[in-house]
Amino acid sequence: MINKEDQSKEITPTTLPSFFKDWNWEDRKAKKSNSNKYEEVIDFFISWTLRCAEEKYKDISPSVNDYAKKVLSKLLFDDENHLKDKVVTSVDVWRQWKYIDLITEIKINDEWYLLAFENKMYSPVDLEQLKSMYEITEKYGIGNDFPNANRKYVLLRPDYCFIEEDTKVLAQLKEIIVETEYKKFIYTNIEEIRDKIGISKTDNALFDEFWFNW
């Protein structure tokens, strides 16, 4: 979860190419909603990053695999080094399954994990979106024998811009689901993940543009 002190973090313009940008800078500061499908770009890069964490890519692109594995480790365990000595056997990702942005099945050593994503640029998230993601993913996990403890739900932003609004919605969610399930919700952003892991260029231009030139 993002710490409250991060709310004061100043937002500055990004250096991403135009196809990453959700709107112009003035609109973004005013928090006007105009996503225009740019969230699909986030979906693609998160999906690609997680799949790059598989062990089979370790020898193909070691630096990309290492960083991707740290991203996955941070999301699943809130510790970028937790998977350091573990094998990510497989990562399968489905986009827009029952309106969930990403559903990800992950096998680490011999244990299965499930990550569901609601990816947002600068459009608001509402309670029903998060509730629906939780209910659908819960049924999916039970139906496919995923251990309850290994199911996580991610609300992902590019940066800290909407922390105040998102925190209010998450507080509403906390009131309607049991505490043990609420603790499985991960609220984070790409900037925070990068700050925790650090910058380690991979020499893959697209990968580095997304993760390091934000």
Rank of each mutant, 00 (worst) to 15 (best):
Q96F: 06
T49C: 09
L130T: 00
T15S: 14
I190F: 09
P158W: 07
E192P: 08
M133R: 03
F45H: 15
K174M: 08
P62M: 13
I11C: 01
K174D: 08
F117E: 02
V88H: 06
F207R: 10
I2A: 11
V71E: 11
I199W: 05
L173Q: 04
W214Q: 12
D92A: 12
F146L: 00
T104I: 12
K174Q: 10
V41N: 05
S63F: 13
V91F: 04
P62F: 14
K37V: 04
K56F: 13
N204M: 12
F207P: 04
I106F: 02
S8Q: 11
D85F: 00
A171W: 12
R28H: 11
A30I: 06
D85C: 00
L50C: 07
L16I: 12
S61H: 08
D22E: 10
N24S: 12
N213M: 14
Y122R: 12
S18W: 13
P13K: 09
R151V: 08
L72I: 13
Y187K: 05
K120V: 04
I199Q: 11
C52F: 12
R28Q: 14
W48D: 03
G141C: 11
N150W: 10
Y38Q: 12
Y187N: 06
E111P: 03
F20H: 07
N81H: 02
I103Y: 08
R28G: 11
K29V: 09
K56L: 15
N148Y: 14
F146H: 03
Y187W: 04
I142G: 01
E135H: 00
K32L: 14
P17R: 09
K74L: 01
Y153V: 03
Y122G: 06
L127R: 06
P62I: 15
A30N: 15
A53I: 00
K84E: 13
I186P: 02
D92E: 14
K196I: 13
I193S: 02
Y38T: 13
T89S: 00
E26I: 15
D79H: 02
K32P: 06
A116I: 02
V64D: 07
I11H: 03
E135I: 00
F162C: 05
L50A: 04
Q96Y: 03
I11N: 07
V64L: 08
K174W: 07
L114D: 01
A149H: 09
V87A: 00
K152F: 13
I2M: 10
D110A: 10
D166T: 10
K131A: 05
